[in-house]
Amino acid sequence: MDNFIVYQSKGKQLSIMFLAIVMLVIGAFLLFFGITSEESVNWLCLIIGIVSVVFFGYCLFFILKELFVGKEIVVVNKEGFYDRSSALSKKNELIKWEAVESIKIVSVTGQQFVSIYLIDSDVYLKSISGLRKKAVQANLKLGTGHININMQSAKNVSIEELYDVMNEFCLTYSKKA
């Protein structure tokens, strides 16, 4: 079998970028309203505005970077796979098939993911940084796997197709007994 590559859709990425801009503008409005409130500083609006501007500003930066650079969301090969679907992804680190316990399609808050459950949770958690570790631990508590591939911006590949391909590669090339 050859490599299976899922590419990012520019059109879908543009719609996500538009949503990030809208949320950034709302956050900026709340920040401005919090500062210029007639009686005194409106602390709730100020705090929500700051958090929104920082968070959605970062999201917009990340989306723009990925939009102009273009990217492969997932690369599946005989050795394993590379997940580049989100900010939590390990990007250029190969996840070997031998480390994979199971692959499932899961739904969390109405959004579907290809969820990969790893055999040794501790080894994986030790290999990632603090913020990523907290996010993975939160995902595990929600019942998803260690790695969750978001196909929201995928070009011409369905979540079911990626699931089938990954399962086929895992069964074919895993060296587990």
Rank of each mutant, 00 (worst) to 15 (best):
K91Y: 12
F56T: 09
N77W: 02
S174C: 09
S153E: 15
D164H: 03
I149F: 06
G70P: 12
N3L: 02
K90F: 05
K175G: 08
F81Y: 06
N150V: 00
M151D: 08
D2F: 06
F18S: 12
V53G: 05
L140P: 11
F55G: 05
F62V: 08
L171C: 00
L162G: 00
K12N: 14
L19E: 02
F169P: 00
I149V: 13
S9L: 15
S85Q: 10
S52P: 00
M17V: 14
I159Y: 00
F81E: 01
F55T: 08
Q13Y: 04
I73A: 02
L142V: 09
A28F: 09
L125S: 13
I26P: 01
S107N: 15
C170W: 05
Y58I: 14
F68P: 06
L171E: 04
Q13W: 01
G143A: 12
F18P: 01
I50T: 13
S129Q: 14
L140Y: 08
M23P: 00
Q8L: 14
K133E: 14
T36L: 09
I47S: 11
V69Y: 14
E93G: 04
F62L: 04
S158M: 03
E168H: 08
I116V: 15
A135V: 12
S102Q: 11
L88F: 14
T144I: 12
M1P: 03
N42A: 15
I116K: 03
I35Y: 10
V165R: 01
F55Y: 14
K12W: 10
K71Q: 14
F61Y: 14
M1S: 10
F4G: 02
A138N: 15
G110C: 13
V100H: 07
V75G: 00
V6G: 03
I105F: 05
A135E: 15
F55H: 09
G70E: 06
S121F: 02
L64D: 04
S40K: 11
I103F: 06
K133P: 11
